[in-house]
Design a protein around this nucleic acid. Structure first.
Lengths: 139, 139
DNA sequence: TAGTATATGCAATTTAATTGCATATACTAT
DNA sequence: ATAGTATATGCAATTAAATTGCATATACTA
């Protein structure tokens, strides 16, 4: 995925700071979602913990990042597809949560339509598969 | 749902204590999953916080309760269907997470089959719909 | 380039989760 | 029924995670 942090910030009316750019770069490195603890470890020296919290929150609110909760309740982040906006996330692909290495993959598989019972208005649906990922299978 | 805490404990080789019974009773009260903070509030006077943590963990490990993470990373608990075991949870129904009241419903809708990419072995799949629930719609 | 609004980093606080240990409780075998 | 044993509980202390307030630094505007 080609990512240009500077133009992403512009598009969303966010000020261009080196911390914000750095966070986007780091997350864009991998197709796998990165967990907040891992991000902290990687950026801990460069960016204050509190600042990281705030950046991640605004990115998630603006629709720049997806926040995916794993089975431990830990937040993981991945870049949104370009169609996401502040009003509406289009995170309608299946996530795969490896129960061995705990990595979260964004699969190229669409979330199937689900019929809701009367009275329930679903805005988004998320599907997460739990199991053993590609890499852990080959070990 | 009719629940008999005592026989559930027996079935899973767990000692019969009043705290364990109490937790099951409380969770069985509602078809809606209850959040850990809410449980703490309700039981705080009767059961020590640490004990509650431990009880919830063993229930989840034994397949007595499902742990459903909500969008905030908060754990919510609901009684498993009888087919759940220590080895395998059969939580293959769709959850509905209300973004207004934050309640989590277990819907009577099966999780659709999803084709995994080569190399990924899914053991379970969870689907959660986010939106406005029945009750919040009528308010 | 000066002025203004906002982002950052630090300190302090609040909240959540975990661990160790002494006591209490449930089950087993007699 | 009861003594013995294993395990659950509650409390205290610790560790970790998240939030808040505020002074300073930085980016954008005119």
């Amino acid at each position: 995925m080609k990512i240009d942090p500077v133009s992403i910030l512009k598009e969303h009316d966010l000020k261009h700071t080196k911390q914000r750019v750095r966070v986007l770069e780091e997350i864009a490195l991998d197709t796998v979602a990165i967990s907040q603890p891992d991000l902290e470890k990687k950026l801990g020296k460069e960016i204050d913990r509190v600042t990281l919290y705030r950046i991640l929150n605004t990115y998630q609110e603006k629709g720049i990042l997806h926040r995916i909760m794993d089975m431990n309740g830990t937040a993981n982040y991945a870049i949104c597809s370009s169609s996401c906006s502040e009003d509406h996330h289009h995170d309608e692909h299946v996530h795969f949560n490896c129960t061995k290495c705990f990595k979260i993959y964004c699969l190229e598989v669409e979330v199937p339509r689900i019929k809701m019972p009367k009275g329930f208005l679903a805005k988004t649906v998320s599907s997460t598969a739990y199991g053993i990922c590609e890499k852990c299978n080959n070990i």
